[in-house]
Amino acid sequence: MTDINLTIEDKKFPHSDRIIAHLELHIPSGEFVCLIGPSGCGKSTLLNLIAGLDKNYQGSITFGTPQQDCRIGYVFQNPRLLPWRTVRENIELVLPLHTPAHTVDELLASMKLTAVQETYPQRLSLGMSRRVALVRAFAINPDILLMDEPFVSLDAPTARKIRKQLITLWDQQQHTVLFVTHDLREAITLADRLIFLSNSPMTIVRDIKITIPRTQRFDDSQIETFRQQLLSEYPDLGPLL
């Protein structure tokens, strides 16, 4: 667990316009934050900057714990499993040496993956692969969990099931989570706080706390009411969705 402080003055790719401009964000330790914005606005780029995959920007990103000790779990938009390793090997790959086997066993069981643990990823459905990617991120017990539209292109019941499993796991470990989505209902269901982002150059438009108690998050009418209220209160959010 750790908090995140980020200030990004400027981020550009070669041969393109500014992607991110004047973005300042503080995320307290253990908070679940959803980033919402139009597709292509630079949300994935932001996650890559936080993960340290891209160091080419102006600004600073600091964590509460020293950078090198900070464990980051990253669930990408596509599962990014090694096709030549079994499900279990894919998870064990990212673990530190001498991690007890039951850690993996329990996570696999909680995502209902025990039966396929010796299977190669190409033989799994997309939904299963996404769950494996989730287990992989949780297995390292991350301080920060980055998730980039992890449930996109899943059918609604599956996505709903995995969302519940995600919240159950997060309840146990309380990582700091940054979750990118453009599904407002999903965001309201999961997050403590919503950050609305503008089209590129990306910057923060609104920062909204979600007041629905955690116990009522899977009640669709509550989510819908909150969504309607939000959209009528801030009509400028409509075009960002």
């Binding site: 990408f76 990014r80 990212v94």
Partner: peptide, 21 residues
């Protein structure tokens, strides 16, 4: 490149990256 980024973000050792990725 996707898999290399995955390996980098999970801070895999050089040996693991070479032999497994």
């Amino acid at each position: 490149k996707d898999l290399l980024e995955m390996a980098q973000s999970y801070r895999l050792t050089r040996k693991k990256i070479l032999t497994q990725v």
